[in-house]
């Protein structure tokens, strides 16, 4: 009894100590942290500060060239974009081909590429730490993310589109008239957009797109609206359905590079321009998406 009481008191002391430490931190936020384990603090220097004004691209394109390969973070579970094919074991998709094109641009050889799997939990940490040179993982360019990483130009024009059964009279957003039932995801911007662009439509809200697709198949609605990248994936799964009318909103995907890595950013932007001019972008797009990009 006495012994366990002693042990408990030691533990509570430690707990109290930690909380006090934390609170002390709140009190004077500007004081530098106590130098615990000083000998290990050296590698911390690589962690950049929030300021965008970082010393010009430490370890940018030069380092990649010296290393002899480009390391790109892709997803393994996003069909059509970054997907590990269980049959071949190969990672494939639009994002992967994009990574190959960048490697070819830098080294003249698309095989000088290492793909690393990222999840939405790990992609930004891995980029910021320098484990990967770029993220190509269906990442929408947002102001919030621009604080964390630098984006290239848009590499995939994602945006809201319509999925309908083949042969449907609905060919574009203009055909969404009174009485047409549109399925969407609850509370999403895509539902707000459709309400604005087609105010006469009846909108049925579901909690996510898988659900909405099931409802479309069950005949509960005439069209399904969400990001085109998702809709193309659905259309590939079930050839009775097709994407129509192009996009009517803008949620562009960008390639993310480490903040301050301007030379890699520029290389990729130049490449995107070249690919769009020589038609190789359209080819790649058609290979995965199944149609030409809408202008």
């Amino acid at each position: 009894m006495v012994k366990s009481f002693k042990r408990m008191s030691v533990l509570s002391l430690v707990a109290v100590f930690m909380v006090v430490l934390a609170l002390a931190g709140c009190g004077n936020s500007q004081t530098p942290a106590p130098a615990a384990g000083g000998d290990k603090s050296a590698p911390k220097a690589e962690a950049p500060k929030t300021d965008a004004a970082q010393p010009a691209a430490a370890g940018g394109l030069d380092e990649i060239k010296k290393r002899g390969k480009l390391v790109v973070g892709v997803k393994y579970d996003t069909f059509l974009f970054g997907f590990k094919n269980p049959s071949s074991g190969q990672v494939e998709g639009f994002d992967v081909d994009m990574a190959k094109a960048i490697a070819k641009k830098i080294f003249g050889d698309e095989s000088k590429l290492e793909l690393k799997e990222v999840t939405s939990n790990t992609r930004i940490p891995m980029l910021q730490k320098g484990d990967i040179d770029a993220i190509i993982a269906t990442m929408t360019i947002t102001d919030e993310r621009k604080q964390q990483v630098d984006f290239t130009d848009v590499y995939f024009k994602a945006g809201q589109a319509l999925l309908v059964k083949k042969g449907s009279p609905i060919k574009s957003i203009a055909d969404i008239k009174k009485g047409v039932k549109v399925l969407g995801a609850k509370g999403s911007t895509s539902v707000k957009n459709i309400a604005q662009k087609a105010p006469d439509a009846t909108i049925l809200e579901f909690n996510n797109y898988q659900d909405a697709f099931a409802a479309l198949k069950a005949g509960q609605g005439d069209a399904l609206t969400t990001d085109n990248a998702i809709l193309y994936g659905m259309a590939k799964q079930d050839p009775n359905y097709q994407v129509v009318g192009g996009i009517f909103t803008d949620e562009p995907y960008g390639i993310a590079v480490k903040k301050g890595n301007t030379d890699l950013q520029k290389t990729i932007n130049d490449l995107l321009k070249e690919m769009k001019q020589d038609g190789s972008y359209d080819k790649m797009y058609e290979k995965w998406i199944g149609e030409k990009p809408s202008k």
Binding site: D77, F79, F83, E117, T119, N121, F213, M234
Partner: peptide
Amino acid sequence: ATAIALPELVHNMSIVKSQNVNYT
């Protein structure tokens, strides 16, 4: 560990199911 992309059972299940809504 699926959160850090360890290719274990849940991770590989997620890849298989992502091919098609009907595989979920």
